[in-house]
Structures are given as C-alpha cells and as structure tokens.
C-alpha cells in the first residue's frame, strides 16, 4: 500500500482531494468563525460590565 498510488487516486487526485479539501476547509473556517464570534461578544460583554462597575461605584460613592 504505497501512499503515492493512494494520493494519485488513479488520476482523479485533483477532483477527489479538491472536494474533500474544500469540505474540511469549510468545516474548519465555520468552527473558527463561531469561536471568533463568541470571543467578540464576550469581550464586548466584559467591557460593558466594566463600564457598569465604574458608573456603579461612581454613583454610589
């Protein structure tokens, strides 16, 4: 079982690996974007929270 033949896919390498490559790429990009979106909203929430704390202390004092 040598890897050369395997990857050659009997001449259809471009088509087979083109399909699976793009699929895995799409899955990876989608996961990264989901994580990125989560980090953005969490950062925003932390900023909001800090603003609230500053104002909160300000008013109470």
């Amino acid at each position: 079982m040598n890897w050369g033949d395997f990857f050659a896919m009997n001449g259809y390498a471009f088509y087979v690996w083109g399909s699976y490559g793009v699929t895995v790429l799409v899955f990876a990009v989608e996961a990264l974007m989901a994580r990125n979106r989560r980090n953005n909203i969490l950062r925003e929430l932390r900023l909001m929270r800090m603003d609230m704390e500053d104002n909160g202390n300000g008013e109470q004092a």
Partner: peptide
C-alpha cells in the same frame, strides 16, 4: 455554538449574562 453567541448578543443587557 452559534446559538450560544446569538443568545449572548441578544441578551447582553440582562442580569444573568453579566453574572456569567
């Protein structure tokens, strides 16, 4: 995962989010 981000985005002004 995406719905969790959407929940945070839409409930950003609620109490339970700031306590997370």
């Amino acid at each position: 995962a995406r719905v969790r981000s959407i929940i945070l985005e839409r409930e950003r002004n609620t109490q339970w989010v700031s306590e997370l």
